[in-house]
Design a protein around this nucleic acid. Structure first.
Length: 205
DNA sequence: CTCCCGATAT
DNA sequence: ATATCAGGAG
């Protein structure tokens, strides 16, 4: 009854298996993901070019005054918290990981501003590591509508998805469900007519 | 469960 | 003016 494989195959034909966040190395992805909390990827992409240019390395962010970081990210919400997260996370990257982004969920989650969703997202999209499934608001909603879970708690949803999905597809599944949720299976008016899963979706009319 | 907190669409 | 967007920390 686990038609996840079928779901992935169909989604792969219409969506790319990647984030819409712009980044060119693991550190940039980590920064972008911290900024993307409760914020659209499009908004984050508006400010990251100048941010990455001014602060190319963790060392640059770690040494920057909080106020200067805030200037560069002021147009995203929660910018004060996020500025602190960026500076402190960068400091830890420098002091504990030699300026590299760590490759386990536990190490990533220990960084300020990085929760389980962000950690899974970074691991897969920076390194291709499938250690968890990033469950954001899109993945949660779409999974419920598809009948892949009956839970609302992201942790429980992730557990359900992990059990019905081959481990090598965890990151891919998350990326694809996010795009489906963003463009087709929207929160308010789901576009059933343009959904490639409508014939196997319990929620489609 | 409360706080963080701006831009854009309606 | 108000809804929507869409995580993490304390």
């Amino acid at each position: 009854m686990s038609h996840v494989k079928e779901i992935i195959e169909r989604l792969e034909k219409v969506f790319p298996n990647k984030l819409e966040l712009n980044f060119s190395n693991p550190f940039q992805l980590l920064v972008a993901v911290i900024l993307s909390a409760q914020t659209t990827d499009a908004k984050v992409n508006q400010i990251t070019p100048k941010l990455f240019e001014r602060f190319p390395t963790p060392k640059d962010l770690a040494e920057a005054p909080l106020e200067e970081i805030e200037e560069y990210i002021r147009s995203v919400n929660y910018y004060r918290n996020k500025a602190k997260f960026l500076k402190e996370a960068s400091r830890i990257l420098v002091e504990k990981y030699g300026g590299e982004v760590p490759k386990t969920i536990d190490e990533l989650v220990a960084l300020p501003g990085i929760g389980r969703k962000s950690a899974s997202m970074i691991l897969y999209n920076a390194y291709g590591i499938n250690e968890g499934i990033a469950v954001d608001t899109h993945v949660a909603r779409v999974s419920q509508r598809l009948g892949l879970t009956s839970h609302t708690d992201p942790q429980k949803i992730e557990k359900d998805l992990m059990q019905i999905t081959p481990k090598e597809d965890w990151g891919k599944l998350s990326n694809l469900l996010i795009l489906l949720g963003r463009y087709v299976c929207t929160a308010k008016n789901p576009q059933h007519h343009k959904c490639v899963l409508r014939d196997i979706c319990p929620s489609a009319v």
